[in-house]
Write a protein that binds this DNA or RNA. Structure first.
Length: 549
RNA sequence: GGGCCGUUAGCUCAACUGGCAGAGCUCCGGACUUUUAAUCCGGCGGAGCAGGUUCGAGCCCUGCACGGCCCUCCA
């Protein structure tokens, strides 16, 4: 499905050019068609001279970053020159010691995307980018010969090229690969975005992230940051002896969270399956099986609206630890997030160490984060001494007094949660563990030993946003069955997000789930927080958008 | 689902009150063997879609499409 349709011409159905079997861009706007045609002409000219615009890769290659580092003298004392470079002994000065106009004689072969050309008649400077590193290649008629130099006439910005040459400094002192040979290794038929401004329009950046990446170092940094974050989370969990596991994405019964699932269909089995809304139940079955510490990082899918904080598919970290309670999981949560923040800062992908900037204000992630009972926070917010989950009428009055809309079928616990979500959560700025949620809204969590109406559940709130959810897991299969039945009643009463009864999970619990602590962490939201991005679409390479056409 | 805003050349942006739609980059042709977003000369290229009002619409009105932000929902 490459290159079909028109990026910026919504009137053009994407399938038109496919159906007609026409080449890329055939249905594009006139100007774009022209630009593509000109690039095709250049490609044809190359082919006419026996050059392959899409040759295979392989062979010797030096990274541009390594080559540039040679000029900085960063590799001084290193017995090896730039990776794989041939010994240059006696051929000339070390690249870092080169005077303007001097050549080191050190041979390299570099490759990258052509991001700028500066032609001077019988000389051309070709700036190539490899990752985030750029170097200029000097193509000279007298060194390349007429045939070799002719290639520069057929190059366009955006092409992938390779150059063999020697490390030199130009007359102006710029680190340069003085080329003995320049080859095209990947013709770009479409023009890249504005080399100075990149792509600004959010829609194009999201739909065609490759254009954004090709033009924006910041966009590339986002992708790297995600990788650094995931690596940091895994490192922390690995050090704590957690085992990384994978569980099904296709679930016969959606469970482990309150959410509307996507439905799909398996042809051979003739059954509907659900894209998972959480890996929770499978992970706990692994704990039942005798794997005491497991975690999974993976995509979950929830069939709900899109917003700056919600993408229908998002990355979830869930971790379970046998013989632990929610106290240990809070400590783990804090450790994971602080490590991730440090890792990103060390990688130069964010500033501020453990202080992060979010919107107008800063958030301090350092130290130990306070743990505040939910009912205490709500009581404070509504200005009462204490709240009693046994007095639903009183809670309903408070909801009315604070203009929190409620439904008749909601119990006291749900009312308390609503009050919390409307009056408290948005105002919790500094990292705060909110603990001890009503059992009514926590169907998988262990009852609090001091209050059977509460569950040993916690959520971490930072900058008014929920980042994690976890609890001391419910391990009593009979209690779990009752909770499921309660959920089933809610579902029957019209709650689309209530959980169905999962007999396989109950059977697993009956085999014996040890006391277990569980943690769920929204990776995308953590990345948003750490990078200070207020839209989830800025931290997901390809966010879900309404399809074109 | 609701509200507000947006959509001008491939990209980035302009345009008086409704009066011939401009520029930079890209691209094409030309000059140039040391540039740094190279420079110089010349050139190609445009109003999201469909209607309406008007002598005349980029600008006003209606509908549609897509997007952004907020609300709703949720994590």
């Amino acid at each position: 499905m490459l290159g079909c349709g028109a990026v910026s011409d919504p009137s053009t159905p994407q399938h038109a050019s496919e159906a007609a079997g026409e080449p890329a861009g055939a249905e594009a706007p006139a100007r774009l068609r022209e630009l593509i045609a000109e690039r095709r002409e250049a490609m044809d000219a190359l082919r006419a001279r026996g050059l392959d615009p899409y040759p295979p890769g392989g062979g010797r290659l030096d990274r541009v970053g390594d080559v540039v580092a040679r000029f900085d003298g960063e590799l001084d004392g290193d017995p090896e020159p730039a990776a794989g470079a041939e010994p240059a002994a006696g051929a000339g000065p070390h690249p870092a010691a080169l005077a303007p106009g001097e050549d080191s004689g050190e041979a390299v072969r570099v490759a990258g995307r052509l991001v700028a050309t500066r032609g001077h008649g019988k000389l051309a400077f070709l700036v190539i980018r490899d990752g985030d590193d750029e170097v200029q290649v000097m193509a000279r008629l007298d060194r390349l010969g007429a045939e070799g130099f002719a290639l520069t006439d057929d190059l366009h910005e955006g092409d992938w090229i390779a150059a063999e040459g020697t490390l030199a400094r130009s007359k102006r002192g710029e680190p340069t690969v003085d080329a003995d040979a320049v080859t095209i290794v990947g013709k770009a038929l479409r023009p890249p975005p504005d080399k100075w401004h990149g792509v600004r329009e959010p829609e194009t950046r999201y739909r065609h992230r490759e254009m954004d990446l090709a033009a924006s170092q910041e966009a590339r940094a986002m992708v790297r940051a995600r990788a650094v974050l995931l690596a940091a989370l895994r490192a922390e969990l690995d050090e704590r002896a957690y085992l990384e596991v994978e569980t099904p994405l296709l679930h016969p019964i959606p469970g482990g969270a309150n959410a509307t699932p996507f439905v799909t269909h398996h042809e051979a089995l003739g059954v509907d399956l659900y894209l998972r809304i959480a890996p929770e139940l499978y992970l706990k079955r692994l704990v039942v099986g005798g794997l005491p510490r497991v975690y999974e990082i993976g995509r979950v899918f929830r069939n709900e609206g899109l917003s700056t904080r919600h993408n229908p598919e998002f990355t979830m970290l869930e971790a379970y630890q046998a013989h632990a309670g929610y106290g240990e999981m809070m400590a783990l949560t804090q450790g994971l997030i602080q490590r991730a923040a440090s890792a990103l800062a060390e990688a130069g992908l964010r500033e501020g160490g453990l202080v992060t900037r979010f919107g107008e204000a800063e958030v301090d992630l350092s130290g130990d984060w306070p743990r505040r009972p939910l009912l205490d926070l709500v009581a404070e917010a509504v200005g009462v001494e204490r709240l009693d989950l046994g007095d639903r009428a009183r809670l309903a009055e408070l909801c009315a007094a604070h203009r929190v809309p409620i439904e008749d079928r909601w119990g006291a616990g749900k009312l308390a949660l609503e009050l919390y979500e409307k009056l408290v959560e948005p105002h919790l700025w500094e990292p705060t563990f909110v603990i001890d949620y009503p059992v009514e809204v926590s169907p998988l969590a262990r009852r609090h030993p001091d209050d059977p109406g509460l569950a040993q559940r916690y959520e971490l709130i930072i900058a008014g946003r929920e980042l994690t959810n976890g609890f001391s897991e419910l391990t009593d299969p009979d209690d779990q069955r009752e909770r499921f039945e309660e959920q089933a009643r809610a579902k029957a009463a019209g709650d689309a997000e209530a959980m169905p009864i999962d007999e396989d999970y109950l059977a697993a619990m009956e085999l014996g789930l040890p006391p277990t602590g569980g943690l769920g962490l929204g990776v995308d939201r953590l990345l948003m927080l750490l990078l200070g991005r207020e839209s989830i679409r800025e931290v997901v390479a390809f966010p879900t958008l309404r399809p074109r056409g």
